Computed example of a mutant assay.
Amino acid sequence: MKSSEGMPLKRLVRWLLLIVVLMFAFGFALVPLYDVMCKAFGINGKTAGQYEGSQVIDQNRQVRVQFLPTNAVDMVWEFYSKADEVVVHPGAVTEMIFVARNPSDHAMSAQAVPSIAPSTAAAYFHKTECFCFTQQVLQPGERIEMPVRFIVDRDLPPDIKHLTLAYTLFDITARHPPVAKVGG
């Protein structure tokens, strides 16, 4: 059997299947490609991973760090920081506590995704500990305090005097079901 243009139907189906497979593979390649582009060009305020260095504290300079915790559309948890902002000296280790509570009647899993504004400052913001590195699991009614420890780098450009650390909390229960607690 031939199609109207004379191409055998089997050949047409093979080409269409190949196109579908290539489109699917391209979709998977976009995520790591996007992360590489954001990191290379400082787009979207992506922060680097866990920082393990140390710095001398610049006592002559202060930077205001504002915290902006938000929930994704489908997330029902209460999520907030213990303070709206702190003033830090570049090079100093600073800690802020974020609080999450699961008001639902079932266990849920969550993941926080950080972002820094202005995006040009992301390379100068180092997290030494962060709840965003791991998934959080809360049982019904459970509340947790989650620290983030960070250092604003001494090499932060002098014209940047204010940073915003934003976290968006996503419900990932459907993809990563929580494990039930045993005996507790």
Rank of each mutant, 00 (worst) to 15 (best):
M146I: 06
Q62H: 04
T47Q: 13
L169T: 04
V63R: 05
A92D: 05
S81M: 02
N102A: 03
S119K: 03
H162Q: 09
G45V: 03
V148S: 03
F67P: 01
S115D: 06
D35G: 13
T120K: 15
N71L: 10
T120F: 05
F131P: 10
S119T: 04
E145I: 15
T134A: 07
T94M: 06
F133V: 07
I116C: 11
I172T: 01
Q139G: 07
K82I: 14
V86H: 08
P69H: 12
S54A: 09
E142D: 11
A29W: 15
A83G: 03
L68T: 09
F79L: 11
V88L: 01
P157C: 12
F28G: 11
V152P: 03
I97C: 03
E52N: 13
V99K: 09
E145G: 02
F98N: 01
G42Q: 01
Q139N: 08
Q135A: 14
D153K: 07
V36I: 10
T164A: 13
M96N: 04
A166Y: 00
N71Q: 12
K39V: 03
Q139F: 12
V31Y: 13
T168M: 12
Y51Q: 11
E78M: 10
C38I: 00
A123T: 02
S54V: 09
E52K: 05
L163C: 00
L138R: 02
A110L: 00
P118V: 11
R61H: 09
E145L: 15
E52T: 11
P147N: 04
Q59H: 08
A121W: 08
S104G: 08
C130D: 06
C38K: 14
A29E: 12
V137Y: 01
D84N: 10
P103Y: 00
S115L: 14
M37W: 15
A107G: 15
E85N: 13
K39E: 15
Q136W: 12
N102I: 00
H89D: 12
T47E: 06
V137H: 04
M96P: 00
I43R: 00
N44L: 12
S119D: 04
T128N: 03
S109D: 11
V93I: 14
V63F: 04
D153L: 06
F67Y: 14
